[in-house]
Design a protein around this nucleic acid. Structure first.
Lengths: 111, 111
DNA sequence: GGGCTTGCTTTGCTCACCAAGGTATGTTAC
DNA sequence: GTAACATACCTTGGTGAGCAAAGCAAGCCC
C-alpha cells in the first residue's frame, strides 16, 4: 500500500525514538528496520531520516558516536539520552491515545 | 492530553470522511462530534476544518447544501459524493494499515 | 447592554516530509 | 579492470497540512 504523504507526519519521530529505545542504531539500520517490521509498509526516506536525527540530537534527545565497522565505512550510532527516553515515552503514549481516539471515530463509519 | 501538532496531520481528512460516511454533517457539528467521540482528545480547530472542507469540496469529494435551522443561522451541510465514498474507504484502510505498522514497531520498545 | 454560544470564513505563518542530488567505500559479476 | 549494486553518510529547496488569530452574523440569557 502506498500511503498519502501526510499520514506519515508525526510517525517518524515516534518511530525513531521507539527503535532507539531498544538499543543504539545507526541511521541506515533504522531505515531497514522500519521497513522490515512494518512489512515494507513504511519506507522512511533518507531525506527525512538524516535531518530528523540531526534535529533530535540538537534538541538533546540523542547522542551519537562513530564506530568502526568490519566492512565498509564507519557508522554513526545514535542512542537515547535521559531526555530522549522521556520523549520516547511521551510520543508513544500520544500515539496510542491518537490511535484509540481514531478507532472510536472510525468504528461508527464502517460500511 | 495535548498532542504534538504533527500527530494530527493526516488524521483530519480521515476523520472528516469517516463522520460524513455516517450521515451529512455541518462543520460546527463535526467539530463537536470529533471532540465528543474522542473524549475531548481531539480538538479540531476551525482554521483547520473549514479550509479542509472547502478543499475537499473542490476536489469533488463532498457536496454541500444550505439548510435552514430552527434556531440561529442556516447551516451548510456536507455529504459525500461517490468519489468521496471511495476516498473515505481508502483513507480508513490506510489509517488502519499505519496503525498496525506502528503497533508492530512500538511493541518491541516497551519499557 | 454585555457576554456566551452557535455558525461560517479568511490570511499568514510554521515546520514536517521528501525529491533529488551529492560523497565515499566495499562486493559481486563479467 | 570496470560496471553495477549495496552500504552508509549528508544537504538543498520545495510543498502543503494544520493553526493562531481575526472577523462577521445571529440568537439566547441575565
Amino acid at each position: 500500500m502506498d500511503f498519502d504523504r501526510e499520514f506519515l507526519t508525526g510517525t517518524v519521530t515516534t518511530l525513531i525514538l521507539a527503535l532507539l529505545s531498544e538499543r543504539p542504531h545507526y541511521a541506515y539500520e533504522i531505515l531497514r528496520e522500519a521497513e522490515r517490521r512494518s512489512n515494507r509498509q513504511f519506507e522512511l526516506k533518507e531525506g527525512t531520516l538524516y535531518p530528523s536525527l540531526h534535529q533530535m540530537e540538537r534538541s538533546g534527545w540523542l547522542a551519537s558516536e562513530w564506530r568502526e565497522s568490519d566492512a565498509g565505512r564507519p557508522r554513526k550510532y545514535y542512542s537515547l539520552t535521559a531526555k530522549g527516553r522521556r520523549q520516547a515515552k511521551s510520543k508513544r503514549e500520544q500515539w496510542e491515545a491518537i490511535a484509540a481516539a481514531m478507532q472510536a471515530i472510525l468504528e461508527g463509519s464502517h460500511a
